[in-house]
Each structure stands twice: as structure tokens, then as C-alpha cells.
């Protein structure tokens, strides 16, 4: 009962309500067209990658870091896979595995650089982003690589019952695994402890450095999956893959309630926020507006949600600050 009440007041609940209302609105606006199998499939198909890149950012935010290289890691891994399959005839599973590992190693490298050099994570990932963008361009140049096996492409477009795209299910599975990892495993808990209160974590014998490295590696691994889904679901890979990932990667966790100072695991919030951003895009298409509206709306929402969040925490802080001295006064009287 208490737990239910607690959930009712969370960001997730708010997002869920907004999402449902938004969806109903879209259904009405489209005169029910959106409920058709095909429309639903398209809606979900383009949700898989945004969910994953949001989670890739969320997991580093959880430890109080950030990752500017999300797009570069994903784009680089996607191009590497494409080139391996198309130009070098590497079998699909092996190519995907290599791509996934490359992305994970890139994440690991970010983590190691942050920990070893103690340079601000912002700058480290800005630098690795730039390097990887260069590498991505080296790999594909100005071509679009699309000569990879048809099997992979049909995996990318397959939908269970014609409604649930396989790649969307993969994204949900990753989200589920990440949630379990962060909530129920010792490394996951330690990661969040490091993000929530690094001093307390250190006093409890937790290595904050290890948490940072794990978070960055996980981020890379999730981006590896995102890259696989991108290769599978798009007609081909080129130098622009990943170019527009950065802003949505921050938008989903921030709208989802993640704290930039670390310590919050908002898997569900991130997924729901990705849904809402997708709905904005769907609405935009429904009313045939400029694509730019999406960025404008999402930017406003992000700004609004951080400002509101800040106001809320401030008010809470004020309440607690007032509480302690009151108690002291009471103590003096007694």
C-alpha cells in the first residue's frame, strides 16, 4: 500500500500518465489510424534505438559522469560491422560480435581515461567522440555500406504478430537486464552507491573508480546493441549514423528524472521518456509539421523539467533546513 502510494508520486507515474494521455490524443487525432498494426509497428520500430541511447547515457549519469561520445561510439561500431560484412565477408554473427565488443572497449577506454587521468569526463568523452568520428569516416568515407546479408535486414524488420518489432523487444530486454543489474546485483548497487554518495561509498569499502569504469563500459555495451539494431533496421550505414544521437541521449534520462549529480537509476523513466519523445515525433508527422518542431519541443521540455526538478529539491531542502533549528528551539524550551 505504502509502496503503491510512493510510486504514485514518482516521475515515472507522471510520465506514464502523460504518455497514455498523449497516446490517446494521437489516436483520436489520427481517427484511429494509429491503432492499425502497421502504424503501431512503425511507431515501435523507431523507438528501439532511442530507448537504448537514452539508457546508455542514463547509466553514466547514474555514477555522476556523462558521455558525449554516445553517437560516435554507436556510429563507429555500426560502420565497423557494416564494413566487416560487406567488404570483408565476415559472417554476420561474428561481425556483430566484433562490433559489440568494439563499442564496449570504447566505453571501457572512456572509463579508464577518466579514472587514470582524472580529467573531467566531459572533456575525455569530447575527445574520444572526435577521434571516433574520424575513425568512422575513415571506415566508410562518403559511401553508404549496404551490401550485407539479407538475413540481417529481415531480422531488423521482422515484427511479432506484425505489431511488435523484434528490435523493439531486444531494446526492452536490454532495459530489463539493466534494471535488474542496477537494482539487484552487487556491482549495480555499488555503482549507484558511488553515484549517490561517493564519500559514504568509499567509507564502505566500495571503489568509486571501479564503479566509473563499469558504468562507462556498460554504456559502451548498450551502444553496441544500439549499433547492431541500427545496422539491422536501416537500409545501410554511412558516416552520419549516430550524428543525431547526442541530444536525445540526454533528453530521455533527464526527462525521466535522472539526477546529473548521480545516484539515480531511472530505467523505466528513461524508457517512458523515449516513448514521449517518439510521440512528439509522431504528432509532428500527423500534423505534417517541420521536423525541427521536435527538437524545439524536446528542448523546451528538458529545460522545463530540470528547472522544475531544481525548484522541487530546493523547496524540500528548505523544509528540512527549517526543521532542524525548530527542534533546537524546542529543546531550549523543554
Amino acid at each position: 500500500m505504502k509502496a503503491t502510494l510512493r510510486f504514485a508520486r514518482t516521475t515515472e507515474m507522471t510520465l506514464l500518465v502523460i504518455g497514455v494521455v498523449f497516446f490517446v490524443f494521437l489516436v483520436i487525432a489520427s481517427h484511429g489510424d494509429l491503432l492499425e498494426a502497421n502504424s503501431l509497428r512503425v511507431l515501435l520500430q523507431f523507438l528501439a534505438v532511442p530507448v537504448l541511447i537514452g539508457l546508455a547515457q542514463m547509466v553514466v549519469l547514474a555514477v555522476g559522469q556523462l558521455n558525449l561520445a554516445v553517437g560516435a561510439v554507436g556510429g563507429f561500431a555500426a560502420c565497423a560491422m557494416g564494413v566487416l560484412m560487406a567488404d570483408h565477408g565476415v559472417p554476420v554473427p561474428l561481425a556483430l560480435l566484433i562490433g559489440f565488443l568494439l563499442a564496449s572497449v570504447a566505453g571501457l577506454l572512456n572509463g579508464l581515461l577518466v579514472v587514470l587521468t582524472r580529467i573531467n569526463g566531459f572533456i575525455v568523452t569530447l575527445a574520444t567522440m572526435t577521434v571516433l568520428l574520424g575513425v568512422q569516416y575513415r571506415l566508410v568515407g562518403t559511401r553508404t555500406v549496404d551490401a550485407y546479408p539479407q538475413g540481417l535486414k529481415s531480422f531488423g524488420s521482422y515484427a511479432v504478430f506484425g505489431v511488435l518489432p523484434l528490435i523493439f523487444l531486444v531494446a526492452l530486454v536490454v532495459a530489463g537486464l539493466l534494471a535488474v543489474m542496477l537494482r539487484r546485483t552487487v556491482p549495480g548497487r555499488q555503482l549507484l552507491a558511488s553515484g549517490g554518495n561517493p564519500i559514504a561509498a568509499r567509507l564502505s569499502g566500495i571503489s568509486n573508480d571501479r564503479s566509473v569504469i563499469i558504468a562507462h563500459t556498460l554504456s559502451g555495451a548498450i551502444l553496441g546493441v544500439a549499433a547492431i539494431l541500427t545496422v539491422a533496421s536501416s537500409p545501410g550505414v554511412n558516416k552520419s549514423i549516430g550524428g543525431d544521437w547526442l541530444l536525445p541521449s540526454f533528453a530521455a534520462p533527464i526527462i525521466g528524472g535522472a539526477l546529473l549529480t548521480g545516484g539515480s537509476a531511472v530505467v523505466l523513466g528513461t524508457v517512458l521518456a523515449a516513448f514521449i519523445v517518439r510521440f512528439v515525433d509522431t504528432a509532428r508527422a500527423e500534423f505534417s509539421l517541420e521536423p525541427s518542431w521536435v527538437n524545439f519541443v524536446v528542448g523546451t521540455v528538458v529545460l522545463g523539467s530540470v528547472v522544475l526538478g531544481q525548484v522541487r529539491t530546493r523547496r524540500q531542502e528548505r523544509r528540512t533546513v527549517v526543521k532542524a533549528p525548530d527542534a533546537a528551539v524546542a529543546g531550549g524550551v523543554s
Binding site: 548497487r189 549507484l192 552507491a193 549517490g196 554518495n197 564519500i199 559514504a200 567509507l203 545516484g263 539515480s264
Partner: peptide, 12 residues
């Protein structure tokens, strides 16, 4: 030790 500063993890 119980320090002066609170040493609990907020989300836990």
C-alpha cells in the same frame, strides 16, 4: 564510526 556528515546512500 558515525560521522557528523550523514553517510547514507540517498536512493537506498
Amino acid at each position: 564510526v558515525v560521522h557528523q556528515e550523514r553517510n547514507l546512500i540517498p536512493g537506498f
